[in-house]
Every structure is written in structure tokens, then in C-alpha cells.
């Protein structure tokens, strides 16, 4: 086994340290070293989005980032989207709109959609479809996913009393 590197980073707001080989992707580190299996491997070459995470505020495919690149970075995974017991509006909308069937692509969609709403709280349908084009879903035909994202955007519009 190749020499492992020590990496200090922040994952879902918690200071985190791990050891990894340079050839291990962030996806491998999350899943195999840290037990965070919410990000999924669908293609391992950046074409399906099932492994999406938010790295320093931007959505990336974790299969196309090396673990060693996380030094000093801030990472958010699907496990960090909810606020404790309280689901994120996107998560709630996915449940209510039946926007998942098998659910394997769901973490990637929610992470990507969160990055979208963080940058544009009021996207229209085309913007949602364009932004999520890097996330493949084979079960839903996208209809209910797009509706869920639009619904979550609407929900966020309502000011908190």
C-alpha cells in the first residue's frame, strides 16, 4: 500500500482528520474511511452526480476530487444537509412530492439542488433542469424531482414568522 497522507479538514461543520492514499477520491474517503456512505458511486467518472458534495460552497462530484485536496477545505455532504432532526426544505419537498423511487440518486440531487438554491433561491423550471442535468435519475423521469425543487424554492420564499 502506498504511503498515506494526513489531512485536516471540516466535514459538515465538524473538524475532521483522516489518513488517505493520494489516489483515493473524496468519495472513497467518505465512504471507506469515514463511514459517510450517503454519497453514492454511480459511475465513478463524473457523469451521474450521485456522489455530489459541496466543496467550499460549490457542488462537485466527489469521485473527481482527491481526498488529499481536502486539506483545509470545508465539505458538506448529504449527511450535513438537515439541521439535526429538522429536515431541509428540499428533503421535505422530496418526501412530499414523491420525488424518489429507488433513492440511490436522491442524495446527489438534494446536494446539487441545495447548491442551486443557495446561489439562486428562485430558479425557474428551465434553470432547475439545466442545473441538475449532471445528476442522472433513471426511476422518476425527473418530473417529480423538478417539482420538488421548485416547491422547496417556493417554501423558502415564505418569510419565517
Amino acid at each position: 500500500m502506498a504511503r498515506r497522507t494526513h489531512v485536516t479538514t471540516s466535514i459538515n461543520g465538524l473538524p475532521t482528520e483522516f489518513l488517505c492514499e493520494p489516489r483515493q477520491s473524496v468519495l472513497e474517503v467518505l465512504r471507506d474511511e469515514l463511514g459517510l456512505t450517503g454519497a453514492k458511486e454511480g459511475c465513478n467518472n463524473g457523469n451521474c452526480g450521485a456522489c455530489a458534495v459541496i466543496l467550499n460552497g460549490r457542488v462537485v462530484n466527489s469521485c473527481c476530487v482527491l481526498g488529499v485536496e481536502l486539506e483545509g477545505a470545508e465539505l458538506t455532504t448529504i449527511e450535513g444537509i438537515a439541521d439535526g432532526e429538522k429536515l431541509h426544505p428540499l428533503q421535505q419537498a422530496f418526501l412530499e412530492e414523491a420525488a424518489l423511487q429507488c433513492g440511490i440518486c436522491t442524495p446527489g440531487f438534494i446536494v446539487s439542488a441545495k447548491a442551486l438554491l443557495d446561489s439562486d433561491p428562485h430558479p425557474d423550471e428551465h434553470k432547475v433542469r439545466f442545473w441538475l442535468a449532471g445528476n442522472l435519475c433513471r426511476c422518476t423521469g425527473y418530473d417529480k424531482i423538478v417539482r420538488a425543487v421548485l416547491k422547496a424554492a417556493d417554501a423558502a420564499e415564505t418569510p419565517v414568522p
Binding site: R31, G38, I78, E79, L87, L95
Partner: peptide, 23 residues
């Protein structure tokens, strides 16, 4: 009716255990 599915919360929070997730 259209209730929320029993496995829904686990799947939207990344906790659901798929085959490759087994350790």
C-alpha cells in the same frame, strides 16, 4: 391518498443502507 413513504427520511438524509454501503 399520498402519504410519505416509510423509507423516505432515511433516503433523503443519506442514511439508507444500500448494498455497497455495508461495512
Amino acid at each position: 391518498t399520498r402519504p410519505v413513504r416509510p423509507d423516505g427520511v432515511e433516503k433523503v438524509t443519506g442514511k439508507a443502507q444500500y448494498g455497497a454501503d455495508i461495512r
